[in-house]
Nucleic acid binder design. Structure first.
Lengths: 157, 157
DNA sequence: CTCATATAATTAGGTTGCCTAACAAAAACA
DNA sequence: TGTTTTTGTTAGGCAACCTAATTATATGAG
């Protein structure tokens, strides 16, 4: 473990690269994809505060992906019948996205899948270490949010 | 923060999804890609124990990607002049991969890039929290290593 | 010693999850 | 009114993986 041979930075890099590749949802080709699930969560969360539906721009900001990416995600979810688009009543440029009833069911299944994926880990770590982990991940994200290690492409937010 | 509204599992999922997308090496289209860098590290590390070069299968195991993926990575690195392939002396099926001199220079640059990317975070967290983070990531990986959340495709190792 | 089987790597083709650039439509402003 | 800005979409591309099939070589069973 001599620092010169395998520095801490390199270990962290390797750990993050491995964590990145974990297939949390145990997804194997059927139903909504992991990125769909993330979008579903976001749309559902918004629906609690604004029943008219979330905008593409808001989704783009919250998911931290470009608007064309959101369009593709929504095309996909719409094709699966999980969301519906409608043009905003007062600004005809913006489109509002809401969950359909089937989308809501898919959301609940996704929530279960995520719970299944993480509750084992949470039990394994125990409440203290789980809280530490969540806190540290938050700090990592906060640090890089302020220090320019942006997603590929270097969006300026 | 009511558990029923945004369960811990969902928060962890979201955090991991965001961490996954960080562009650690600040890569913007020039030089070896992040996955190349990971391979470079692996090849270099092996060269310390075995001067004849690492095999494709060994790289596949250590990087946790399929052998065709390793082949593609190696094609790429060879094209960039960073590695060289040679058939093994005693088993003509296996090919041995070593860093070229330019590959070694690229390795050193990559090491610096990783250090640049992580030393800021390490300073920000301080030694105690950095150690905690490294330890927790290790536990997460160990847990999922034993609990079947394998990389996409569900390889059986 | 030969033939079937196992192993190493490659080729071919596909998928996910992103991106930028260019655009059309609508709103805001000057 | 006309220019500028904002919103979302279309088009096309790329990174980083995968599986299935193939080739070449080695190994083991009779």
């Amino acid at each position: 473990m001599a620092i010169s041979e395998n520095p801490l930075s390199q270990q962290l890099f390797e750990s993050f690269m491995r964590v990145r590749k974990l297939n949390w949802l145990n997804w194997h080709g059927a139903g909504p994809r992991p990125s769909d699930v993330r979008a579903l969560f976001c749309i559902k969360k918004d629906s609690a505060v604004d029943g008219t539906g979330i905008t593409v721009t808001a989704l783009s900001n919250q998911l931290r992906v470009s608007t064309p990416t959101v369009t593709q995600l929504m095309n996909d979810l719409e094709l699966q019948g999980l969301v519906e688009r409608s043009t905003d009543a007062t600004d005809r440029r913006v489109i509002r996205v809401r969950l359909t009833e089937e989308g809501d069911r898919a959301f609940k299944r996704a929530q279960s899948a995520v719970a299944d994926a993480f509750n084992g880990l949470i039990d394994y770590l125990g409440p203290d270490q789980t809280a530490e982990l969540a806190g540290l991940l938050g700090k990592v994200l906060a640090y890089y949010h302020d220090h320019q290690v942006l997603p590929t492409g270097g969006r300026k937010l």
